[in-house]
Design a protein around this nucleic acid. Sequence first.
DNA 1: TCTGGGGTCCTAGGACCC
DNA 2: TCTGGGGTCCTAGGACCC
Length: 424
Amino acid sequence: MALALVDCENFYASCERIFRPDLKNTPIVVLSNNDGCVIARSTEAKEMGIDMGVPWFRVKNSFLNQGGKVFSSNFTFYGDMSARVMNILEGFVPKVETYSIDEAFLELDTLKKHYDLYDFGCHIRNLVRQWTGVPVRIGIAPTKTLTKIAVNEVKRLNIPTNVYRLTTKKDIRNALANTPIHNVWGVGKKLDIHLKKIKITNALHLADKDPSYIKQQFSVVLERTVRELRGERCLGIEDNITAKKQIIVSRSFGNRVRNLQTLKPIISNFSARAAEKLRNEKQNCSQVSVFIRTSNFNIYKPKHIGQKTIDLSTPTSDTRDILTAAKKALIFIFKPGYEYAKAGVLLSKFTDEKFKQYSLFKNFNKTKANTQLMQHIDQFNAYEIQIFYASQNISHWSPTKQNMTSPKYTTNWHELPIVNQEEK
DNA sequence: TCTGGGGTCCTAGGACCC
DNA sequence: TCTGGGGTCCTAGGACCC
């Protein structure tokens, strides 16, 4: 029984380096929307003590003074690089689960007969590096939770091949003993505190607890983690892409928003984008929620979080229906006198667009025509937004600030990297 | 002055039914 | 005056993930 976890090393930071070989060994950080906080760091940046999630303004000066290089996030580019990596993995392994933009689980049971799994891991690692430029770490182990531990062991033990396999009981116990409890997959902030209170401070302590005791004291989720740490496979590879259950479009604002007039077009833009994503998923939704909130961090200003969900009588993916519902929700939750820092639109309760449920009050032919209209609009907008609704404000998709973005090297003809003859 | 965005799963508790 | 018990379904919110 063996699974593997392929984990792209410092993914966003590594992406920024691919077409910038001059940045080899340079500390790199990538920032969130609005250039608000650090969401990725190269190894060099980590060594400088730049923490994950730290507000950029707090580390900016010292980081740049020490020769660091900063980028705004360029998700179009990262997404494309991710797809390339996943493609390679799928070419070599029949069962691949794309777990996130920078991680994939592989089922290796069928390959075990033909290959030495460690050698196979090294092979994959080298190919991905050669074909995409993305460095990956690979952990091989009997369960998903243990593959996570194996990848951490690559870092902890500084394994030169970047591939580590956990097989023997002894190796596993040793790795668990060296894993602090908060590094266990499924243990977050809250559980970390609770577990430490009862003297569970590393993964081995947790693995040695009775699963039913853990279930009774905590939850079935943590019980599963215990079993997985003991080598009992509770989580399988999920390689059939299941339909999304919700779609969110939300942003923090670069500048605070105080009035409804400013908020309306923002919510309209979010709604239009969410509807487009929904059609892309070939789903209809029956619920539209809107939320607006003040800053989490400013303790001196009055706080307000407003959230409202509107039920739709007929499942839809028509932008106009979603716009109408979102506007209704916004008016319901907006309160003057607050400085809003973030807003979002959430679509939920999906049904497949194939199973149309026709309303008594809607004309069938009209519905069909509307679907076609949406298709045409999506086609026009695929490259850049050309058609939009009166309530949107195209000049400000949302009031965000971002100004250090790298080119869309691989997805935009106008931004392709240029190969210089002299540099060859 | 300035602190991301997009997801999933589980559970407690309320509504409702017989 | 005395006012059950058990089941299901739904939802909001919490915790977690990257």
